[in-house]
């Protein structure tokens, strides 16, 4: 069992990049593209998160004998 610190940095990095892109696009008057960028970043991170949550639920199910 290991603690994957890399994932934390990955998500934080995506968050910072999306935030910067959002600012740049908003300031240049492209609000729609900024929203779509935020949404895309969120979907990417959610896909990474879904696997972790599935792993956790599987572990809980195994440990508590569901």
């Amino acid at each position: 069992m290991t603690m994957e610190i890399d994932l934390i940095f990955k998500i934080a990095a995506i968050g910072i990049i999306v935030s910067i892109l959002n600012q740049v696009l908003s300031r240049s008057g492209r609000e729609e593209q900024a929203t779509m960028t935020s949404l895309a970043g969120l979907v990417v991170v959610l896909m990474m998160l879904a696997q972790k949550i599935a792993d956790l639920f599987e572990l809980v199910k195994t440990l508590f004998e569901f």
């Binding site: 998500i11 934080a12 968050g15 999306v18 935030s19 959002n22 969120l42 991170v45 959610l46």
Partner: peptide, 9 residues
């Protein structure tokens, strides 16, 4: 800046 990203993290 991105509240939803903070929640996901």
């Amino acid at each position: 800046q991105e509240k939803d990203m903070g929640t996901v993290l």
